[in-house]
Design a binder for these strands. Structure first.
Lengths: 140, 140
DNA sequence: AAATTAAATGCAATTTAGTTGCATAAACTA
DNA sequence: TAGTTTATGCAACTAAATTGCATTTAATTT
């Protein structure tokens, strides 16, 4: 994706175009997998931890990123699909977590499954996390 | 569940019977919902933070507890079902997270769904997190 | 039951993650 | 290009996760 396209995404979400936001955006586009704040810190060393933290938050608020549930206790983030808007997030897709390399990626498959909940409960979203061994690690 | 039964669970998992482990176990049995380490710290104030931390870890290792994925970045734990053993965990059940009170609970429904993954990938488990409003919060 | 062995606990300390305030610098607007 | 708004970096703080070590306690053996 071109620099201009990234600028477009930022503008669409009414975010100012800054070096940090451009680089973070590019990083998420290059890596297909979910990233944690420390991943950013390790790769984009020119920026302050706090700046990266606030960049993630502004991306979250504007609907560019979403948080991906995992059991480790470390927040990870992934790019939203085109179908996401700040108001209405559409994250009912499937994430795959490799138990060897730890990488989390977004599978294209949609969760279409119906879930039965106790009466009186209201369902907003469904998230599915599949864990196992990814293609790369399976070869090792 | 009686004290003796709890002792039995600990023995089955080859864990020494200590006050802390008994109390933590009892706490998980009383609360039906998932708990975080800080929940334990707030309720079981007689024990050191580190002791609770290590108790959670030993319960994890022996298969008494499992981690429940969530997107907040705080690890939460829930009791495993009877079907779990240290070697083979059976956690393909559904968790419900209330967006109002934040409580996470385990729904009895089993995930029976088949998932399509890229070729070369191996699936170990499937986790499903449903979020919405729980019965209690819906009444408020 | 006492002695031995192995493991759990508490304390101190460290590392890492998440968060806020404020002065400065940069991006947008007119 | 001047003025306004927002983003950044630094310092500082809170909270979570983790490790080492001395002490205590539980289980085992005699």
């Amino acid at each position: 994706m071109s620099q201009e396209n990234i600028k477009g995404i930022l503008k669409t979400h009414q975010l100012r175009i800054t070096d940090c936001r451009m680089d973070v955006m590019q990083f998420f586009l290059d890596e297909k997998s979910a990233l944690s704040q420390s991943d950013l810190e390790n790769q984009l060393t020119t920026y302050d931890r706090v700046t990266l933290y606030r960049t993630l938050n502004s991306f979250l608020d504007s609907g560019i990123l979403h948080r991906i549930p995992n059991e480790t206790g470390i927040a990870t983030y992934g790019l939203c699909h085109d179908t996401c808007s700040p108001d209405q997030h559409e994250h009912n897709h499937v994430h795959f977590k490799c138990n060897k390399c730890g990488q989390i990626e977004c599978l294209e498959e949609k969760v279409a499954h119906h879930v039965t909940v106790p009466s009186g409960y209201k369902v907003d979203g469904i998230n599915m996390i599949v864990d196992g061994i990814c293609g790369k690690c399976a070869l090792i």
